[in-house]
Design a protein around this nucleic acid. Sequence first.
DNA 1: TCTTGACCTAAAGTTAGGTTTAGCAATTAC
DNA 2: GTAATTGCTAAACCTAACTTTAGGTCAAGA
Lengths: 156, 156
Amino acid sequence: MISIGQLAARTGMTVSAIRFYEAEGLIHPERNAGGQRRFLRSDIRRLSFVMIAKQFGFSLGEIKQTLAGLPQGRTPTKEDWAAIGQGFRAALDARIDTLERLRDNLDGCIGCGCLSLPNCALYNLGDAAARAGSGPRYLMGDKPATKAPDSRQQNL
Amino acid sequence: MISIGQLAARTGMTVSAIRFYEAEGLIHPERNAGGQRRFLRSDIRRLSFVMIAKQFGFSLGEIKQTLAGLPQGRTPTKEDWAAIGQGFRAALDARIDTLERLRDNLDGCIGCGCLSLPNCALYNLGDAAARAGSGPRYLMGDKPATKAPDSRQQNL
DNA sequence: TCTTGACCTAAAGTTAGGTTTAGCAATTAC
DNA sequence: GTAATTGCTAAACCTAACTTTAGGTCAAGA
């Protein structure tokens, strides 16, 4: 069992972030007699996973869902982690695909220079890919909010 | 010259978002005798650009910088907009490239199931690609903050 | 034992990107 | 001309993901 400071040193996270993650339900440390947190060594890997997932653009809520797939009670095995990695792989493929389609459409738009709002292939594609950069929350299951198709104009 | 409501209708933005963008320096409307905002028709395209750029994951600050490249005083031409599109193309290419490298490394990691913190190719790549999902601010010029290489452990 | 450093909680602050509310002024429609 | 829209500002509120602060407790070394 390790302290929060040791866990922070070994993951590169701050102590405050770890406490925050506990509050968010991402880790579940025990407490010693004096009330201080005591973590399992396997929590180092658990937090490493959180950091990598964040780099992939997943929200803490999504990461929490994913971690819920780990076995309760026993330390996760290589295979447990590998299964989660497969889910990541699929999400990444989807994200790359979206960006490539965006890029292909941009190529067409550079030629015309239009960027006009509902005619532009770029913009229409964007409706489907919205939030792809600022937080692709839908990649792990959320549906992107569909915009009300309100009356927009024809030409800029 | 058009009102804020008309501009909102033609871009699909809310009136409050447009006012917010003015406060952030993304558009510079004039005012009529009664103090109401009056926009140029070319501001429709300007805001369309803002919406598309946001979908690409750029922050408002980055978009503001980019828009600063448009000519002052005259309505931007097709060529002005096309030049900006080229910058987008490059940023997108970089982003796709990063994600592909991330994916390739993930493939290796699925095999080993490691996810160990400083040995993992995934994690180390992540240092360079950090925040790629939750807001890739460095793609348009910002440098990603380099982490202090504090002592992390060798194996999980 | 004593002191210092690590830890504790609760609450407030931070940034981005807006939205909502309140109270009032300007425009537009009839 | 008057009522209904639309617009105005300022300030408060919102979410995510944390950090900072304040005031106190626990644990480890000399």
